[in-house]
Simulated assay, not measured.
Amino acid sequence: MMKVIICEDNSVHRAKLKQLIENTILREKVDLDIALCVGEPEEVIDYTEKNHITGIYFLDVDLKNNINGIRLGERIREMDPLGFIIFTTTHLEMSYLAFKYKVEAMDYVIKEDYDFKQRVESCLLKAYSTYYKGKLKEGYISIKEDTRIINIKLCDILFIETTEIAHRIRVHEENRQFEFYGNLKNVQEKLTSNFYRCHKSYIVNKDKIEEIDKKNNKIIMINGEECYVSFRYMRGLLL
């Protein structure tokens, strides 16, 4: 899931921008999450240093801090070279500084302009589309659900299983699980060769297997989770 980071020192503007982005995410059903919404640039730097992400950053230019938005963008660009940086400002004349510090901003959105809402939405959706258009060619699959589109990074998947609810699929990643409606056959057609149908109810990522317990027909994944392998599919798993 792609992350959105907001840094705006004015609490009213910060809340307005956050609400606007949340509404866009819900309305457009995109797989985005607001990971951080703060007024202090140091918090953004700390988050970006600790999390290896390609993010969408909305940065106020004038942060009433010794680190202004342009400088913050410069730091972000060092840590997240492929990130999308959008400056929100009342000072368009300061935009030249972004070129000076090689920030490579996606856009400059004037807070008081009549089309502020449309410009923010446009930037958000364009960044999302650009990112996943490239990533879908680099080991992602896109799953459509009623209320959202889920973009799944294949190398993060441990295994996929059916649930007790008919036509409901659960995806296990190392640090999260999520569900959607579908069937294993259709999902398997979108997967790469390292995924193996090991059971009528399971598809496993062979690259994420820690151990195969042949006696109990179990597969232990790298995070300790277990799934089952049927006897008829055991041989194919061991090849």
Rank of each mutant, 00 (worst) to 15 (best):
N151W: 00
M2D: 14
I67N: 04
Y181P: 07
L20E: 15
L125N: 15
A166D: 11
I45C: 13
E8Q: 15
E161G: 02
S122Q: 08
S95K: 04
T147M: 04
D107C: 09
I169Y: 06
D9R: 00
G224C: 05
L124P: 13
E43D: 12
E145F: 08
K64A: 03
Q118I: 01
D33P: 01
I21P: 04
L26W: 10
I34E: 09
E138D: 15
L59D: 07
N23F: 10
I152W: 00
L184P: 13
K18S: 14
T48L: 12
S11Y: 09
I222F: 03
F99C: 13
L125E: 15
K153P: 01
E8G: 13
K3G: 13
N205T: 11
T163I: 01
I70T: 06
K144W: 05
M234C: 02
N194L: 08
R197E: 07
D33A: 13
L239M: 14
R71C: 07
C7P: 04
K100L: 14
C155A: 04
K64S: 09
R75K: 10
Y228T: 05
C155I: 04
S11F: 08
Y202A: 07
K190A: 06
Y228A: 10
E40L: 13
T90F: 09
K190H: 03
F58V: 01
L154C: 01
V109D: 11
L237W: 09
S193P: 10
V4L: 07
E93L: 13
E210M: 00
Y181W: 11
V103C: 05
T163N: 07
V204H: 08
K64G: 07
N183G: 03
T89C: 07
E145H: 09
P81A: 05
L124Y: 09
T24A: 15
T163S: 12
E138Y: 08
K50N: 11
V44S: 14
D213G: 11
D9W: 12
V187W: 13
N217K: 05
E179I: 02
Y101L: 05
M1L: 11
E78D: 11
Y114T: 06
K126T: 12
V109Q: 10
C198H: 02
S11A: 10
L17K: 02
H91G: 05
Y131M: 02
H199C: 02
I149Q: 02
I169T: 06
V109K: 08
K64R: 01
V4S: 06
Y47D: 09
K18N: 15
I152S: 02
F180L: 00
Y114P: 00
K200A: 06
K50L: 07
G55C: 12
L92K: 03
N65Q: 04
I56D: 15
T163R: 08
E40M: 15
T54A: 08
F116S: 10
L63N: 03
I70V: 15
I222H: 04
H91V: 03
V171W: 10
I157T: 08
V61I: 15
L59T: 01
L125D: 15
Y96I: 14
Q188V: 02
E40D: 15
R27W: 03
D207M: 04
C198W: 01
Y140P: 02
R27V: 06
A35K: 00
I149Y: 06
T88S: 13
D213E: 12
D207C: 10
